[in-house]
Design a binder for these strands. Structure first.
Length: 641
RNA sequence: CGCGGGGUGGAGCAGCUGGUAGCUUACCGGGCUCAUAACCCGGACGUCGUAGGUCCGAAUCCUACCCCCGCAACCA
């Protein structure tokens, strides 16, 4: 029997353990977990994979800064990630780490398959090199000013020998794949990807020799593989593909590949819908059925980032509100594929209104009444009356609506349907007014029917919410006395509870004092103490070389050919200069006029998009690129030192 | 003309394979007392960014424009 079960293979991205995970990673993993649990409940043979992508320059550097080996560095962070998933009871079947031998050997094998196919060639990769840091940077990383993102010093254009994958060769097939309409969702991403292909695919650089924390290229020991092959192939290597001589069977590959769904963030949709299928085309293996790009959780209207200090730590929220409340909120509040605003207030509102008021309170009042009116035992029902039929109908058909939404990963709508049943049940209590029935012995039969229906409705709810909140499901079942394991088929029935013994327990979701919680959450996120000095020490002579002078901006305008640049004319009391700054995001030109400033005036002149900049204005610069002028009260042209 | 997303009652969102706008919350009024000051009912509040167009009919399709926000080869 179980041999014939339909399989369902779902993956999350493998996360990059350069820092601890935040709520965004949790969001993605929670969705995958809910889907995996749902499919298991529906009877599928589910394989759920998550893991970590542990190689690369950034991790090598972080480890170096910390004075540990890269392996030791990632081990510690991965340990934290696994603990987080354990706390949240993420039901993954396998956790793959790209530093594991089972993965590395297989990636090398995949490389060789592509190489032997003639899809990999040696070429030169062009980029920017920072000699003091010995780091290689891409065009984007070096930015318009061509400086090292790390130390801020100028970088030189440089060539690095590297291996390339003939991505361009697959452009037509990829376009066809995307136009098929089934592969990539949501659909809005499809046009984006086709547009990207249409502007011309370049071959992909897949190796690096400027760092060595990676999987060695099998045919050239000077190189390690760049993220593409290394990370993307995890989805197969974890299943034991390809067969290599290490005793791990590829049975799982035969069974579960191709993947049903790769769940990914919108920023890596491109890699999963272009590079990944191209790789698979090269090694002639089946393509995943679907790539799903989910949206981001935005904080204060912007992306969460460490430098802004607005990273939301899931551990804090779990400690305070519990795993289920957090999962419910994440799944209920946001629409798959779209960005959503995360605020503590939105979260606490959901927890209070939906969980405490609607569900928690319903459980509480139901169990209390059955104890009070029926001696704690769920009675048999009499004939339907009044709203009985409507309640039953809504409850026993809810699974259909939930399934329909889950097929589209519309977790929010699935939960909304379940909550419609919960609300209907609350309403049912009002309509039937059991406390009135209880006063008249002649109405005992009717009272029993109502109590029975309430217990059944709650039992169905306990089944339906299982994939999303299995603890809550269990707690409800305990309180209403539902026996046995959760079974999807039971969501279709309305007569399982007669004779069950209810037992009032703690409130499953205590009501929160939102104002107080908001205050405490705010206090918790008190900014971590940052060291004042973040750069290497310099000699006094080095400092002496910098010529700082005061001045006043007398003219300001946008750079005609650049979005981020403002062109200032600055008066230094005698001499007037043109200085360009990348601060268009922080100021409007007109509001800068008359601004007193401090400038470095012995910086070598530099052309910026066709206009010369003669010096540099000083700003207090937030890491999120919000600038504030360093002001002075001195007259123009005064030496600063 | 770089690419993309979005602009819907006070707030946050859904609707967008076209047929006179829906959900949660807040607000006002009422009901109930089994329950976690919860629950239930009713009400007010929107010319669906702007201007055109297609159509018997558009928030939903087309065109132009305005305003926010991301991305521009690796931060879910």
């Amino acid at each position: 029997m179980s041999e014939d079960k339909k399989t369902f293979y779902i993956t999350t991205p493998i996360y990059y353990p350069s820092d601890n995970l935040h709520i965004g990673h949790t969001y993605c993993t929670v969705m995958a977990d809910a889907m995996a649990r749902f499919k298991r409940l529906e009877g599928y043979d589910v394989r759920f994979l998550t893991g970590t992508d542990e190689h690369g320059q950034k991790i090598q550097e972080k480890a170096k800064d910390k004075g540990v080996t890269p392996q030791a560095y990632v081990d510690e962070i991965v340990d934290g990630i696994k603990k987080l998933w354990a706390t949240m009871e993420i039901s993954y079947d396998d956790f793959i780490r790209t530093t594991e031998p089972r993965h590395m050997k297989r990636v090398q094998d995949i490389f060789m398959r592509m190489y032997n196919k003639g899809d990999i060639y040696k070429g030169a990769y062009e980029g920017w090199y920072c000699t003091p840091c010995e780091s290689f940077w891409t065009d984007t990383q070096a930015g318009e000013n061509h400086v090292c993102p790390d130390c801020g010093r100028p970088v030189q254009k440089a060539h690095e020998e590297a291996y390339f994958f003939k991505l361009s060769k697959y452009a037509d097939k990829l376009r066809e794949l995307l136009k098929g309409g089934e592969f990539l969702q949501p659909e809005t991403r499809v046009n984006e990807m086709i547009g990207f292909i249409d502007q011309g695919l370049e071959d992909l650089c897949i190796s690096r020799s400027s760092f060595d924390w990676g999987i060695p290229v099998p045919i050239d020991e000077k190189h390690v593989m760049y993220v593409w092959l290394d990370a993307l192939s995890n989805y197969m290597t974890a299943l034991g593909y390809p067969e290599v001589d290490d005793g791990i069977s590829s049975e799982n590959y035969k069974k579960y590949w191709p993947a049903d769904y790769h769940l990914v963030g919108k920023e890596i949709v491109r890699f999963h819908s272009i590079i990944w299928p191209a790789m698979l085309m090269s090694i002639e293996e089946p393509l995943p059925k679907h790539v799903l790009g989910h949206g981001w959780l935005l904080i204060d209207g912007g992306k969460m980032s460490k430098s802004k200090g607005n990273v939301v730590d899931p551990v804090v929220l779990i400690d305070r509100y519990g795993v289920d409340a957090l999962k419910y909120f994440l799944l209920r509040e946001y629409t798959f594929g779209q960005d959503g605003a995360f605020t503590n207030e939105v979260m606490l509102n959901r927890m209070n209104f939906d969980l405490a008021n609607d569900l928690g309170n319903l459980v509480s009042r139901t169990v209390s009444m059955i104890e009070k009116y029926c001696g704690g035992v769920v009675p048999a029902a009499g004939a339907d009356e009044g709203p009985d039929a409507e309640l039953k109908e809504m409850a026993v058909t809810c699974y259909e609506r939930v399934s329909k939404h889950m097929d589209k990963f519309a977790f929010n709508l699935a939960l909304e349907e379940i909550w419609a049943v919960i609300r209907r049940t609350n309403k049912y209590i009002d309509e039937t007014a059991p406390w009135v029935l209880a006063k008249d012995e002649a109405l005992k039969g009717r009272l029993d029917t109502v109590m029975h229906n309430l217990a059944e409705a709650l039992r169905i709810v306990s089944v339906l919410i299982y994939p999303f909140m299995h603890h809550t499901s269990a707690e409800i079942r305990k309180q209403i006395g539902a026996e046995g394991d959760v079974n999807w088929e039971d969501a279709k029935l309305f007569d399982k509870m007669v004779g069950a013994t209810v037992k009032k327990g703690e409130a499953i979701f205590p009501r929160l004092d939102i104002a107080k919680e908001l205050e405490e959450l705010e206090a918790l996120k008190a900014a971590p103490v940052k060291p004042v000095c973040t750069k290497e020490l310099i000699e006094f002579d080095d400092f002496e070389k910098i010529d700082l002078k005061t001045g006043t901006i007398i003219k300001a305008e946008k750079h005609p050919k650049a979005d981020k640049l403002l062109v200032f004319q600055v008066d230094f009391g005698g001499e007037q200069r043109q200085i360009i700054s990348g601060v268009a995001g922080s100021f409007k030109p007109e509001e800068c006029i008359g601004q007193k400033v401090v400038a470095v005036v012995n910086l070598k002149p530099r052309m910026l998009r066709g206009l010369e900049s003669n010096g540099m204005l000083l700003y207090a610069c937030g890491e999120d690129h919000s600038y504030k002028f360093v002001e002075t009260k001195a007259d123009n042209g005064i030496e600063v030192g």
